[in-house]
Amino acid sequence: MAENKQSAEAIVSDVHKKIRAAFEAFDFESNNTVDAREISTIVYSLGCFPFQKDLHDFISQVEENHSGYVHLDKFLPAMTKVLMEHKFPPIPEDLLLQAFEVLDKEKKGYLEPEELTKYMTQEGEPFTQEEMDEMLTALADHEKNHIYYKDLISQLTIDPDM
């Protein structure tokens, strides 16, 4: 019994480390606070892909009195609950690969940033240009200006046993 408790504590500890690392990447003033507009990127980086309505509800829950800022003390328990309860489940790797392959009509193995921007800002639940800029900065091969999606799938998904 104690073994199970210890492993549960270890899992929560690992989850906290991942959340803190993702949060701290956007804590530019090192004051345990991030701009609320960065929360979507942080949530996505943790392998969660909520619908926009669910994401906005989550941001409202963790934002400090409509100040435009989110403090780690409020974000950490809320995001831990999301991850532990699998509230915003990750997209399976095979499904993500199929989606990229549908977009890659010429079967090149990559997408041009302009192509991805067009799809992501005009289809489904559209991303904002700011979200796309952040995504392209993180995902594009800057030498060739291509997005090699097969290399990215492991970055865009998360181990379901986490």
Rank of each mutant, 00 (worst) to 15 (best):
A2T: 15
E3R: 15
Q6N: 13
A8H: 11
A8I: 11
A10W: 06
I11C: 13
S13A: 06
D14M: 15
H16D: 14
I19N: 02
R20N: 07
R20I: 11
F23M: 02
D27K: 05
D27W: 07
E29N: 11
E29R: 14
S30G: 12
N31E: 04
N32Q: 15
T33V: 12
V34G: 03
V34R: 01
A36Y: 06
I39F: 04
S40I: 02
I42G: 00
V43L: 04
Y44T: 08
L46S: 06
F49S: 11
F49W: 14
P50G: 03
F51R: 15
L55K: 02
L55V: 05
F58T: 00
F58A: 01
V62A: 01
H66C: 13
H66R: 14
S67M: 08
G68Y: 06
Y69P: 01
H71L: 11
H71A: 14
L72P: 07
K74L: 08
L76M: 14
L76S: 07
P77E: 01
A78P: 07
A78N: 08
T80I: 02
K81G: 00
L83H: 04
L83Y: 03
M84W: 03
M84L: 15
H86W: 11
K87T: 13
F88N: 00
P90N: 12
I91R: 08
P92Q: 06
L95F: 06
Q98T: 13
A99Y: 01
E101T: 10
V102N: 11
D104A: 09
D104C: 09
K105M: 06
K107I: 07
G109S: 02
G109Q: 01
L111Q: 00
E112S: 01
E114Y: 08
E115V: 07
E115R: 02
Y119V: 15
T121V: 09
Q122E: 14
G124I: 12
Q129A: 10
Q129V: 07
E131V: 03
D133S: 09
T137Y: 10
T137P: 05
A138V: 09
A140K: 13
D141M: 05
K144D: 14
K144Y: 12
N145C: 05
Y149V: 04
Y149A: 04
D151Y: 08
L152G: 02
I153M: 02
D161E: 13
M162E: 12
